[in-house]
Design a protein around this nucleic acid. Sequence first.
DNA 1: ATATAATCTAGACAGTGTCAAGATAGAAAA
DNA 2: TTTTCTATCTTGACACTGTCTAGATTATAT
Lengths: 203, 203
Amino acid sequence: MENKNTYHHGNLKNALISAGVEILAREGVGALSLRKVAKKVGVSHSAPYAHFKDKQALIAAISIEGFKKLLAELQNTFEKYRANPDRLLLETAWVYFEFALQEKDTFKVMFSGILEKEKNYPDLVDVVQQTFQMVVNVVSICQLNGILRAADADLTSVVVWSQIHGLISLYLEGQISHTILDNYELRKILLYALNQFTLVPIQ
Amino acid sequence: MENKNTYHHGNLKNALISAGVEILAREGVGALSLRKVAKKVGVSHSAPYAHFKDKQALIAAISIEGFKKLLAELQNTFEKYRANPDRLLLETAWVYFEFALQEKDTFKVMFSGILEKEKNYPDLVDVVQQTFQMVVNVVSICQLNGILRAADADLTSVVVWSQIHGLISLYLEGQISHTILDNYELRKILLYALNQFTLVPIQ
DNA sequence: ATATAATCTAGACAGTGTCAAGATAGAAAA
DNA sequence: TTTTCTATCTTGACACTGTCTAGATTATAT
């Protein structure tokens, strides 16, 4: 995947992260091991320790990568729909859904509490905070345009985010019964959920 | 924990499940291993294989135990508040929160997608279905009493459940920023969330 | 150029899930 | 009761895991 001729890889840290993301996509979170990541990059099994304190640190880096990608897509959507606040909310939520569906196992890693709370990864906290800020931005615009109630934007954002996150999480875990999924497609369910929050019906 | 004198344990299957639950509570999901569970019960490292096909099967059994406990508490709450539908919704959600907070890692195991969807555990599907049915019951009563809109009870239940589940999940993962948690306690946030759904404000 | 630091390898260790072969004991059949 | 069968449990092995140490290699700074 990278230049492997030299003793020093040159870009090992990023190569390890990419390899980890690929393994997540191809084989799932259960197959993610430091040794496999190292082998995939063509480096010895303990080479990663020059760049990551432990496995958790690699997972944190992968999470950061995931959040950055999600954040970028949220920003795109924001620019695209900021003039149409009624669609902005739905499309923002939908981007979240699409990310979770496409990067199923990366999403799982990002939110499944593998990382212990004790250790704090400042860069991760940063990008999570930025991602949440995007939700706040969307909520704020919707409030200004009479689509959402004018309550505390932070509080509303947390609740809206939870709604979206809970829905896609339960869906990914297969917890939403098929009898419901047969009657309503995912986007319809999302729409119904978001319409609980809106002052004006959106579609 | 059980009679350990005889060669045959007598109640090994249940003992293994209990030991697993204890390890989850004491050391967290990262420390849950078949060998540790076996040692805790005082049995050889491969004795569990007489009762569980593999580690996933033990985890499924632990999940079932968790859902049964959650279900029992939901049923208690239902009986307690069925005459007060305005509190029923809140207290049902709160029981869900309390379970997740008390049995943090069991909750994580129940919902963190460790179990592969391919393998299906009928008993697990059963108890999950029963748990969801409790939500439907609560939602139905609330609809009959004009607390919730009279829409499809299944659809509304999925969305309400997602809201509750998303909120406590993000909280447990530490994703809800401290600036918000400093301003609002968890129950207030939950209340605000549920009031998005209700026709009449609840408190 | 030389010293220092960053990067990578090789080997080891304890712990893991899982399988195969065999020991033990309770249950069923004779 | 004795015999057979089957469920249960032990022992030993295997490949794989995360992590540590010691040392080799290369880049960087003095």
